[in-house]
């Protein structure tokens, strides 16, 4: 009886040490490479995350100070890519992502002040003084930096319109289980 208890205890301790040793010895280094993270990020340095630009955010994510979900322009795709890179699981449903958005100029309010042009990190707004400005849809990253610069609130964030080329089949509903 005692022999059995003792032998099992010893066995348990030995195996536990074995496991602990293996866990340290063969630990997979999470590749928290700042450069690799930065490469994934939009690079528009919009500052919506609260860090000084994308390099700052990348450093924070690498250190584990910021979650991989802090980047609004990156959206779900970025979160997934980061989760894969860092080897962590992320609850995607927590990511508020109503789909990509872009800035749109309301022509009737724009006064052509050119302030937004200077703010745009990707030069996505074109225009000249006293001319109505316009946003290049393909170049806008949706960072929303221009919104606050507009003195007449002529800029608005709008969802990227769904076209036939971009439409995605909805996932079949599963909440209603099966036969219900």
């Amino acid at each position: 009886m005692i022999a059995a208890i003792l032998s099992l205890t010893v066995l348990g301790i030995l195996l536990g040490f074995g496991l602990g040793f293996a866990a340290r010895k063969f630990a997979v280094e999470a590749d928290a490479n700042v450069a690799a993270i930065e490469a994934l990020m939009p690079g528009s340095n919009c500052g919506q995350c609260g860090y000084p630009g994308c390099p700052g955010a990348a450093a924070a994510i690498a250190k584990g100070e910021a979650p991989p979900t802090i980047c609004p322009p990156g959206g779900k795709a970025l979160v997934e890519a980061l989760a894969k890179l860092l080897g962590i699981g992320v609850d995607l449903s927590a990511v508020a992502d109503e789909g990509p958005k872009i800035a749109v100029v309301q022509e009737e309010i724009c006064i052509g002040c050119c302030r937004c042009l200077k703010e745009c990190p990707t030069d996505a707004i074109v225009g000249a003084a006293k001319q109505i400005h316009s946003v290049l849809r393909e170049a806008c990253t949706g960072c929303a930096k221009c919104i606050d610069r507009c003195p007449t609130e002529a800029l608005r964030m709008e969802p990227v319109p769904v076209t036939l080329q971009h439409w995605v089949w909805p996932k079949p509903r599963q909440d209603a289980p099966a036969w219900a």
Binding site: P42, L78, T122, E138, T141
Partner: peptide, 16 residues
């Protein structure tokens, strides 16, 4: 597509 867009944005930002 989002990935491509991201890369394009990065190029634009660098160009700027």
């Amino acid at each position: 597509r989002a990935q491509l867009r991201n890369e394009a944005a990065k190029r634009l930002a660098a160009a700027r």
